[in-house]
Amino acid sequence: MNVSDPIIELRRVSKAFGRQRVLDDIDLKVERGKSTVIVGRSGTGKSVLLKHIVGLLRPDKGEVYFESRRIDNLSERALAPVRKEISFVFQLNALFDSMSVAENVAFPMVEQSSNRVNKRKISRLASHCLELVGMAGFENKRPAELSGGEKKRVALARAIAIEPAPKVILYDEPTAGLDPQRADVINKLIRHLQHKVNVTGIVVTHDMKTATEVGDRLLMLWNGRFIADGTPEDVMRAKEDHVRRFVDGNAEPEDLKSLSA
């Protein structure tokens, strides 16, 4: 495997739920160490795409590769080592309600350590991760006691709390539901983590501010296909109608039909 090879590759991936085709012959190569952002309207299959990368969904057609190894045909058991190298920050944070913040952050390390668990080391690493995301001192709180932004930061801490550090972090709508200031904190954290931990990031969002701030590369998904691909600056200047309307935050004409009727 060459370092210049894409760390993640999707080849002609298609996925449908019933009659609804969500991904349509998608090709994607994700460069190592960079931050790739996928934007698109809600319900266009961005999260579905992310779930294919970590094997939570299987494509109807096409292939998924991680570090040049095909993973879409692996069993759940065979996928486990791959999943230890890819962290996922879920849209709803997916913190475990029954555990404290510290236990949530330590959970991947506890579960993934093959030998007898070194509790002190894990606890130290969990505290360090919480410190990285500005959540030191929250160790004993429960997720229910945290605000939306704090939960998101704990979810980020959990995503990096693996030893060795994950090679890829997948972010599903990291700023959804947050006020602009909290969203800015999360954007800066994603950038900070990328430099500090040197991971490849794939961010799915519909927030253009997040997209331009955290992305080295920006793609737009529309009707199951990518209709824009380039640097954030390129995409912001794109002329294509759908891209233009999305970037400017204008509705599609067909969405307004019901209003004019």
């Binding site: 779930k51 970590v54 939570l56 759940e76 996928l79 486990a80 080592p81 999943r83 230890k84 890819i86 962290s87 996922f88 879920f90 849209q91 709803l92 997916a94 913190l95 475990f96 309600d97 959970f107 991947p108 579960e111 993934q112």
Partner: peptide, 15 residues
């Protein structure tokens, strides 16, 4: 509740 709040998916994603 764990299912609809993606906690089961989170477990799977951690192997």
């Amino acid at each position: 509740t764990m299912n609809v709040t993606e906690q089961l998916l989170a477990l799977r994603s951690m192997g």
